[in-house]
Computed example of a mutant assay.
Amino acid sequence: MNNIVPHTFQVERKDRNKLKGHKSFVVWFTGLSGSGKSTLANMVEKRLYDNGVHTFTLDGDNVRGGLNNNLGFSREDRSENLRRIAEVAKLFIDSGSLVIGSFISPLKSDRDSVKKIIGENDFVEIYVNTPIEICESRDVKGLYKKARAGEIKNFTGIDAPYEEPEFPDIEVKTNLEEADASVKRIFDYLKNKLEIKSNE
């Protein structure tokens, strides 16, 4: 580490933000498996894209299929998984892109570490608060069934904890609010932070 000297480039983040016409930061969706994180993230990204925002989405399963395919689901591996994701997200922020992350990220300490790496002002936390009963009834991937049968260990909500965010920027309750309404709330919040005008 002592021999690492970061290079200073002429084109900086502020220049890329100016070129793209909006600010860059991370929108972090957290919640149980099956809560609707990826669905909402996808809908929000499409809304942003339609309004000229340069975006990129990082999703749990997609990242684990490539960059983090050497990590398991132990406490240590989960932390390392999120650390790597945070570092990648930070690079995308510097590129001038708005990053959308969709990760269970069940522990407050890990989310705090992610926020520290990315920077508090560049981190928007969205808590997709869906009761586990509803998440389990959906069970799109069949993971809850496997966890209940003991085929998957350390599964969040079954035999591993999920620590709810205390002060999320936005809380979404998918059992009480239609997806379109949630997306509008999120978009309106992000529009102000991005400092863009909506074309809608």
Rank of each mutant, 00 (worst) to 15 (best):
I126R: 00
K193V: 09
F9E: 08
I4G: 00
I104F: 02
G66T: 10
I158V: 15
S24L: 11
S33C: 14
E45D: 08
N68H: 08
T55R: 01
Y189E: 08
V128E: 05
E76R: 08
L67W: 02
L176M: 13
R185H: 09
N51Q: 08
N17E: 15
L82I: 14
D159A: 06
E171S: 15
V124C: 08
I170V: 15
S102M: 11
P161T: 05
K18G: 04
D122T: 05
G21F: 11
F103L: 15
I104P: 00
T55V: 13
S105Q: 04
D169W: 01
N154M: 02
D169K: 01
V128H: 02
V11L: 13
W28I: 05
I134G: 00
L91Q: 01
I170P: 03
D59L: 11
Y162I: 05
L71Y: 03
N129S: 09
F103H: 03
S182V: 06
S109G: 03
K46E: 12
E151I: 11
D139C: 04
I170S: 05
A41S: 14
T55G: 05
S109K: 15
F103V: 12
D180N: 14
P168G: 04
T8Y: 10
E45H: 00
V114G: 00
M1T: 08
G21I: 08
L32W: 02
V114Q: 02
S198K: 13
L40S: 04
N2R: 14
E163C: 02
T57P: 15
I117L: 14
N175A: 11
D110I: 12
F25W: 04
G34M: 11
I134E: 09
E12M: 13
S113A: 14
I152E: 00
F167H: 13
R64Q: 08
A160P: 02
S113L: 15
L190A: 03
Y162Q: 03
V99Q: 01
I134Y: 02
G60V: 09
E80H: 06
V53R: 01
L190I: 10
F92S: 03
E171N: 05
E87D: 04
T30D: 08
K197A: 12
S97C: 15
F29V: 08
N129Q: 09
F9G: 04
